[in-house]
C-alpha cells in the first residue's frame, strides 16, 4: 500500500544564514488552538496547568518553555505548541488541530530586531518586547504571530500557504540589514 509522505511548510526553502543572522524552520510538534468557552477560563487554566504544566497565557504573553509552549493567539485563544492537548481540556475549551496550518520559523542573531522592524509594525525592541512576549500582528500584509524566545531570537508564524513569501520577505530584509553593517 502507498504511504503518505509528510512535508513541512518551509521544505526546500530553509535554512538561510545572512550577515550573522540565521533563519531556520521550526518543527514544534503538535499545534492546537485552545479557545475557552464562556466562563471557563479559570477552570481551563487549572486543567492546562495540571495536564501540561503551564498557565493559560494572558494577552500578548507566552507560557511554558521550548518544546512545550502556550502562545496567546488572539482573542479568547491560545496555541498549545508541542504536546497534543489532554482530552480533558475539551470540556472547557474548543480544541482545534492546527499542527499543519502554520509555517513556523526562527530568526536569530544580531540584527534580528532590525529585520523585523522592516516588516512588522510593532515595537519589538528588547526593552519593550521581552522574552515571553508575543504579538498577533502582520508581517508585510500577512497575519502573523511573533514571539520572542531569546535575547536575539524570535519565533515567527504565518499561514502555511505563505511560507515562500515569508522566507522571501525575511531574507530580503536580512540582506538589507546585513548590507548596512
Amino acid at each position: 500500500m502507498a504511504e503518505l509522505i509528510a512535508k513541512s511548510p518551509c521544505d526546500g526553502l530553509l535554512p538561510a544564514t545572512i550577515g550573522g543572522m540565521s533563519l531556520t524552520e521550526e518543527h514544534p510538534g503538535a499545534m492546537w488552538a485552545i479557545a475557552p468557552f464562556n466562563g471557563q477560563l479559570k477552570v481551563l487554566g487549572k486543567a492546562l496547568e495540571a495536564a501540561h504544566g503551564m498557565a493559560f497565557p494572558a494577552p500578548n504573553r507566552a507560557t511554558g518553555k521550548a518544546g512545550s509552549r502556550a502562545v496567546w493567539f488572539g482573542r479568547d485563544m491560545a496555541l498549545l505548541m508541542g504536546p497534543a492537548p489532554d482530552a480533558g481540556l475539551a470540556k472547557h475549551a474548543a480544541l482545534t488541530d492546527q499542527s499543519d496550518a502554520w509555517a513556523v520559523v526562527r530568526l536569530e542573531g544580531q540584527g534580528a530586531e532590525d529585520v523585523l522592524a522592516r516588516l512588522v509594525p510593532v515595537d519589538l525592541r528588547p526593552q519593550v518586547f521581552k522574552r515571553g512576549h508575543t504579538a498577533r500582528t502582520e508581517l508585510k500584509h500577512m497575519m502573523a504571530s511573533v514571539t520572542r524566545t531569546g535575547p536575539q531570537s524570535f519565533q515567527i508564524m504565518v499561514f502555511r500557504s505563505m511560507a515562500k513569501t515569508l522566507v522571501h520577505d525575511l531574507k530580503t530584509a536580512m540582506e538589507a540589514v546585513a548590507a548596512r553593517g
Binding site: 485563544m77 474548543a94 492546527q98 499542527s99 496550518a101 502554520w102 499561514f159
Partner: peptide, 10 residues
Amino acid sequence: DVRFTSVTEQ
C-alpha cells in the same frame, strides 16, 4: 457560547 477558528490551512 460558541468558538470558531479558520482551519483552511490545516
